[in-house]
C-alpha cells in the first residue's frame, strides 16, 4: 500500500518542487510532469561511458535504484501492513540505503575525475553525519511505543497520548531535513547551479548518461516520496477511512514538495565548511526528542 502510493506520488513530486521554484522566481516554469518526461527521454537514449571507468560504474546505478525500491517495500501505510516489515526493519531500511550510497560514491570515484572525487568525499561525510539522526529518531519511537518494526511503531505511536504531537512534530521536521540532506538539496548543496559549482550530488552524476542517468534521477525522486510516506505515517489518523487517508496522503506529499520548493527559493546555501555542524544539529534535535521520551517513559513528567 505505502509502496504503491509512494510510487504514484513520485510521478509528480519533483515536478511540484520545480514548479514552485519557478513561480517564486517569477518564471512560468515547466509542467508538473516535465521531470518524468525528461526521464523517459533519457531512457530512450544510448549511453556514453568514460574510458577510465570500469564495471563498477555500469552496475552502480542499477544497484542504487534497486536498494531504494527494496527499501520502499518496508514502508507502512497507516492502518495497513507494509509488504515485508519485520522486527528492526528500520535498521535494514537505513543500511539498504547505505548500500546504494556506497555504490553511488564509488561510481563517482570510478571516473577518476577530481570533481567527482570531491563530491564523493562530501557525500560520504554528510551521509555518515546524518545517519545518527535517523537512528535516534527511530530508537526514540521504539522506546516510546515498545515496538521495533516500522508499522507497529507508527500504529502504536498515534495512541500514546498528547505528547505524541510534540514527538510527531520533531519527527516530521527531522524527516524533511534528512530527505533534503540525503538528496543534497538546499541548505547543504544547491542543485540549481550545475556543474562545478554544485559540489555534492549533481557533480557525482556528471558522467552518467542515458539509461543510467535516468535510474539515478528516478532514485532521487523516489527518495523524496519515500521520506514523505514515512512522514505521512506520523500525520494520518488511524481512525479515518481509506479514501480520506489516501486523499490526505497526497495532500501531505504535495505540501512537502511545496515546502521544499519554498525552502530552496528562500534559503541560501551554507558555506561548505559549515555543513557538518548543520548536519549534526539534526542529531541533537533528535536527542532532545529522545530525552523527552526518556522522561515520559520513566514518569518524570
Amino acid at each position: 500500500m505505502g509502496f504503491l502510493l509512494a510510487i504514484v506520488v513520485t510521478l509528480f513530486f519533483p515536478g511540484i518542487i520545480l514548479r514552485v521554484k519557478s513561480r517564486l522566481s517569477g518564471r512560468k516554469g515547466p509542467g508538473v510532469f516535465q521531470p518524468l518526461r525528461n526521464i523517459l527521454v533519457l531512457m530512450r537514449k544510448g549511453s556514453i561511458f568514460s574510458s577510465v571507468s570500469s564495471y563498477v560504474f555500469r552496475i552502480a546505478p542499477v544497484i542504487y535504484l534497486a536498494t531504494i525500491l527494496c527499501a520502499m517495500l518496508l514502508l507502512p501505510f497507516p492502518g495497513y501492513p507494509s509488504i515485508f516489515g519485520f522486527d528492526g526493519d528500520f535498521v535494514f531500511f537505513a543500511y539498504l540505503l547505505a548500500l546504494g550510497k556506497f555504490l553511488f560514491i564509488i561510481a563517482a570515484l570510478d571516473t577518476g575525475s577530481s570533481f567527482e572525487g570531491m563530491g564523493a568525499s562530501r557525500e560520504a561525510l554528510y551521509s555518515l553525519l546524518v545517519e545518527p539522526a535517523f537512528f535516534i529518531l527511530f530508537g526514540t519511537l521504539a522506546l516510546l511505543t515498545g515496538f521495533t518494526s516500522m508499522q507497529e511503531i507508527f500504529e502504536a505511536f498515534q495512541v500514546t497520548g498528547h505528547h505524541s504531537f510534540i514527538i510527531g512534530f520533531i519527527g516530521v521536521y527531522l524527516l524533511v531535513q534528512i530527505a533534503m540532506i540525503e538528496n543534497s538539496r538546499m541548505p547543504v548543496d544547491d542543485p540549481k547551479t550545475h556543474l562545478e559549482l554544485t559540489m555534492v550530488h549533481e557533480v557525482m552524476i556528471l558522467d552518467h548518461s542515458g539509461f543510467n542517468l535516468a535510474l539515478m534521477h528516478i532514485g532521487t525522486a523516489l527518495k523524496f516520496s519515500m521520506y514523505g510516506t514515512l512522514m505521512a505515517n506520523f500525520l494520518i489518523p488511524l481512525s479515518w477511512g481509506l479514501p480520506e487517508k489516501i486523499g490526505f496522503f497526497f495532500v501531505i506529499q504535495a505540501i512537502m514538495a511545496t515546502v521544499i520548493g519554498l525552502m530552496e527559493s528562500f534559503r541560501a546555501r551554507k558555506k561548505l565548511a559549515r555543513n557538518p555542524q548543520f548536519v549534526v544539529t539534526l542529531s541533537s534535535i533528535a536527542l532532545v526528542a529522545f530525552i523527552l521520551v526518556v522522561l515520559i517513559t520513566f514518569n518524570r513528567i
Binding site: R44, G46, S47, I48, F49, V62, L65, G112, F211
Partner: peptide, 20 residues
C-alpha cells in the same frame, strides 16, 4: 533492472569517451 537495461541498450549506441 539489469535485464531492462539490456533490453533498452541493445539497439542503442554505447560509446567510450574521456571523463568529462
Amino acid at each position: 533492472l539489469f535485464f531492462l537495461r539490456y533490453l533498452l541498450l541493445k539497439r542503442r549506441r554505447v560509446e567510450q569517451q574521456p571523463t568529462w
